[in-house]
Simulated scan of single mutants.
Amino acid sequence: MKEDWTAISDIGKVFNGKELTIESYKKTEDSYISVIRLIMEYLNVPYLTVTDVIRSFPLEMFKNLISDYHELYSKEMIEYYSSEKNNDTLEKEYIDVFCRLLLREDIGSKIFYNRKMKIFIGYDYLMSIHTSKSLDSMISLIEELGLYVEDFSK
């Protein structure tokens, strides 16, 4: 096991002799988002449902806390932080914005498509995807994106 970063707040810190830059952070985050989109496409999932939305901070405090990472937060993302509600349908064009907020621990939420797909994004940059169909054929694609896959179905 090696020491590795686990949060956006680790940007600027050194892990295994290498500084975590905004660019390398975003590259990993992009990989997580790509995996979600790949699996949605594979399962023919047109949208996701969002429930139990919890915001980590009131909006003004959130804006202050993210000021060190302003290049990672678009105006759209900040607006989305304050507007997403329980039982909202998350259309494909907003998957990136919402899941980035989850990965950054800015919000917490259940996110799923009934009977096909459930995504868990939690503390320490952990993502788990439960599906109605085996993802064995996709594991090599996911690993090519630089992510580690642990198969719990066996």
Rank of each mutant, 00 (worst) to 15 (best):
E3C: 11
D4F: 14
T6C: 10
S9R: 04
S9V: 09
I11G: 06
I11C: 08
K13W: 10
F15H: 12
G17C: 10
K18R: 10
E19H: 08
T21E: 08
I22D: 06
K27M: 13
E29V: 14
V35Y: 00
R37C: 10
L38M: 15
L38H: 09
Y42N: 05
Y42R: 04
L43N: 02
N44Y: 02
T49S: 09
T49A: 05
T49M: 11
R55E: 04
M61Y: 13
F62V: 00
N64G: 06
L65K: 10
S67R: 13
S67C: 07
Y69E: 01
S74P: 00
S74W: 00
E76Q: 10
E79G: 09
Y81M: 07
S83V: 08
E84T: 13
D88G: 02
E93C: 07
V97K: 10
V97P: 02
F98K: 01
L102W: 02
R104A: 04
D106M: 11
I107P: 02
S109A: 15
N114Q: 14
R115C: 12
I119P: 00
I119V: 01
F120G: 03
F120T: 10
G122Y: 06
D124F: 10
Y125N: 14
Y125P: 02
M127F: 03
S128T: 13
S128H: 01
H130T: 08
T131N: 02
S132P: 00
S132D: 15
S132Y: 05
K133N: 07
K133H: 10
L135Q: 03
D136R: 10
E143G: 04
E144N: 14
G146L: 05
L147E: 03
D151K: 09
D151P: 02
F152K: 09
S153Q: 02
S153N: 04
